[in-house]
Computed example of a mutant assay.
Amino acid sequence: MSEAGDAPAAPPAPRKRRVQGGLATADVVLSAHAGGNAALFPQILALHVPAGSLVADVTFGQGVFWREVPPGRYRLLASDLATGTDCRALPHADASLDALVLDPPYMEGLLRPKPETRGGLGSHAALRRYYDAGGGRAGPGGGRWHQAVLDLYLDAAREARRVLRDHGILIVKCQDEVSANRQELTHVQIVTGLAALGFYARDLFVLMRPNRPGIARLLRQVHARKNHSYFLVFQKVPAGQEVARYRSRGPVPPRAG
């Protein structure tokens, strides 16, 4: 209480109202798409990988992912089995890359050791010949059936962690499958496995094929036929930090040079 003769206390200054920034828009990158890899992949890069980044696509193949990426936007290191590069043993130095793209065979039929029972033709033919357990080569991780698929992803992710800088981006293409009468949710297994390796699951995209898949022979349908695949985006969590406490942060600016 003020004493007699004291001037009345000034009222407190009004607090400034917080004004939300940004603009109202529907022009955003969505999590589900119908179409092909080439249309979606540039959107993933634009959202998660800054221009000028050093990006290794270690399963480049025919370069379908990159067909609609503006030339020169990234410093691309394209390699695959045709160049002698195994995604499980990369020629890059430790912590030298800003981002890495991985799209290995994701169906167990492509990795069977016996040629007469091995599935798949077309774009995965070279990968199938190299990563199978035939021809005197060890199969991925020593596993069989779907486990061989998962082993391949995990072995490649370990190598990706070695060559990526801290907070670097790993983009993984995968698809769920039914193998040996078991529903295998491959994308869940990869997210769980990579978390144990020190990767934070930053984003997920569902890609649905625009046409209906054909079936040569069908006796009785037990599971829904897969007509979608995934792009999973991971971020390398620095050693000593907990994946469970890691938070999304803005894309790390590319290194110079």
Rank of each mutant, 00 (worst) to 15 (best):
G142F: 10
G122L: 09
L152F: 09
H124Y: 11
V149G: 02
L121Q: 13
H146R: 00
V149D: 01
G141Y: 02
Q147V: 13
P140N: 06
L150V: 08
L152S: 02
D151V: 02
K114L: 12
P140E: 05
R128N: 14
A125Q: 08
H146E: 11
L127W: 05
R129K: 11
T117R: 13
A125F: 04
A148Q: 02
R144A: 15
L121Y: 12
Y130G: 00
G142T: 10
R128C: 12
D151E: 10
Y130A: 03
G136S: 10
K114A: 14
L127K: 07
L152W: 04
R128I: 02
W145C: 09
R144F: 03
G142A: 09
G139I: 01
V149W: 05
P115K: 12
R144D: 11
G135T: 08
R137C: 08
G141S: 03
P140I: 02
L152A: 04
H146I: 01
A148E: 02
L150P: 09
R129W: 09
R144C: 04
G139M: 10
G122T: 10
Y131C: 03
A125K: 10
R128H: 09
S123T: 14
A125I: 07
L150W: 09
A138H: 03
R144N: 11
P140G: 06
L127H: 15
R118C: 07
Y130Q: 03
G135E: 14
G143M: 01
